[in-house]
Design a protein around this nucleic acid. Structure first.
Lengths: 338, 338
DNA sequence: TCATGATCTGAAAGCGCTTTCATACTGGTT
DNA sequence: AACCAGTATGAAAGCGCTTTCAGATCATGA
């Protein structure tokens, strides 16, 4: 194992003091040209790379940002994390990920791990930790939350308005003539995106003068499997519908498969809309009509916001909006004029 | 901001020396019961959490493992990373991810960032850094490579045999009576999984006495889009085929869509097989027949291996194998007896 | 009773870096 | 010539922890 070189090795070779080397490395002071050159040469020669850990200790900051996510392999969180990573690029900061797997205790553990490692800021995605704890946490270090609005921390939150965006897909179906619209919800919690989107569904129907039929909504959990089960449940109930809206794209995939299994064509027999617009949604058969949530962008914004807070520079919490993406899984209701 | 407590704060409150606190924390020595209790109480009271950064400096190890991946949001790498994370669980080690985005220079940069942060070991996935550099790197710290076999580092590599596994899908197609089998390859490099799988395709045909027809193979890049283009190219060439095999699932998704657009049914008109068995492949329409690569398992194995090397405990590099997963995208060739 | 080893604990050095502080030079001014 | 502000540099302290080393305490057996 080749020895790892230290700053004083460089100093010795360049015949200057460690302080000088440090100053050159960080540009914190002007140093004479000759010394600078000697030092640069020594660095080159030794292939010296500063020890970020040691810098962290000395400077009191680790140059890393903790990111708690739910599952790194989920397409949704994956895109968000990619955005975070992108936003950090070139800043010298790097992301340390920790997964909560949708369990509050694991999430707390993740948080505790991150603070143990003295991350300089924390980004949470899909967190289900109570508002109060998050408020507490934000007294210790900068916190930004994506996909949820935490009371008292509104400025540090990045999310689409689920009520507005959620209605987009439903409106689209209604405009195509559908009136019997089933809904596969997300994980039901007291509050959160799933609830908001469900409310959007109800509200949109109401606004269109369509009576809300509880028989048409099934509870899902944002996973493919729950879309599959959802459709089975619907049929078991004898529900009649011409369209299905889902709380996210993944459950729409499951719905799509269930329909396929029953020989029901999409969009000919039943129209289908999702929510999120995952990358793969453009490649399903048929390509999925959905409400686009700028996930990558949101991740990027989150890290930009964290960086701004760390640097003390002001930032405007630019709004992000959902946007209807019409592809091929929705069609005009047969025998109807839109 | 509540002050962050240090080990000496604890020591002061418990009226012992810092050394004693450290010993209790790490269990490196027996200490009198009364002191132990005082210390434990003080820790509780201050809500003290050791600073992992400082520990890292003092102990000369950062308790973090660097993982270079290509894109964190890719379903394939996402699963691998989830596996790595899982394998590290409870070990005290944590993963620091860095993406290379399929570009060697970015990958080198990632490596350099990781070594700057003094990670204790490095796991590479989908790396395209030359063998020689990797050999060099492994002299500095433990390195494990997944998805590729590096000469001189064979014991530290985890991958399926692409030649064996690659033939599985083709054999399946042949056994169903197909003889005109098109192939959408992965990114062509001098050596690597894409090449090996392509060779498997050729070899399997040859073994079955089917003449290799260059007109039937198109170069892809593992992305959905390339599957889409691949099919277009095939048709532009006037190629005739009854089945398509793809170098990975993602390109199979693209192929599926292209076929759908042309009104070609899967598997009725054309059979389709992928490679990888991504989570979502069970939910495509129709569910995709593919060769399963135990990606999560491979990630987990990689971290186990890294941990073993770090601890100096022996490890057996258990083989991983591809496995044919027959779903619904393949069918017996019409008018043929299998 | 005293030497002996075993056991527990604190002082202090050190991990690799940053940063304050003080010193030694500059090159003007008056 | 004497003085001062300004500049470049090194010495040294310190970040929060671990770990070596040595001292203190204690029980034990001769």
């Amino acid at each position: 194992m080749p020895e790892i070189k230290t700053l004083s090795d460089v100093a010795t070779i360049a015949q200057v003091s460690p302080s000088t080397v440090s100053r050159i490395l960080n540009g914190t002071a002007v140093v004479a040209k000759d010394k600078r050159e000697r030092v640069l040469k020594a660095i080159e020669q030794l292939n010296y790379r500063p020890n970020v850990i040691a810098q962290g200790l000395a400077r009191g900051q680790s140059m890393t940002i903790g990111v708690v996510t739910q599952a790194i392999s989920s397409p949704f969180y994956g895109e968000a994390l990619a955005g975070v990573e992108e936003g950090l690029e070139g800043s010298g900061y790097h992301a340390l990920f920790a997964s909560g797997h949708w369990r509050v205790d694991e999430e707390r553990e993740a948080l505790s791990m991150l603070t143990s490692r003295r991350v300089d800021a924390i980004i949470l995605t899909g967190s289900s930790i109570p508002d109060s704890e998050l408020q507490q946490l934000s007294k210790t270090l900068p916190v930004v939350i994506v996909g949820r609005t935490v009371i008292g921390l509104e400025c540090n939150c990045i999310s689409v308005d689920n009520r507005v965006s959620g209605s987009l897909g439903i409106q689209h179906l209604i405009s195509l003539g559908h009136r019997q619209i089933a809904y596969v919800s997300g994980t039901a919690t007291v509050q959160g995106d799933a609830t908001e989107r469900l409310e959007a569904y109800c509200q949109t129907l109401r606004d269109a003068g369509i009576k809300y039929d509880p028989n048409l909504v099934v509870e899902g959990d944002y996973q493919e499997r729950s879309g599959l089960f959802g459709v089975e449940t619907l049929f078991a109930r004898g529900a009649i519908f011409t369209a299905i809206a889902c709380a996210n794209d993944q459950s729409a995939y499951g719905v799509r498969l269930a329909l396929h299994r029953r020989g029901i064509r999409v969009p000919d027999d039943v129209s289908l809309v999702g929510f999120d617009d995952l990358q793969s949604s453009a490649y399903t058969t048929p390509p999925l009509t959905t409400v686009r949530q700028p996930i990558v962008e949101m991740g990027r914004l989150a890290s930009k916001m964290a960086l701004s807070i760390l640097r003390g520079t002001p930032f405007k919490t630019s709004e992000v909006h959902g946007e209807l993406v019409i592809r091929e899984s929705t069609a005009i209701l047969r025998g109807t004029r839109a």
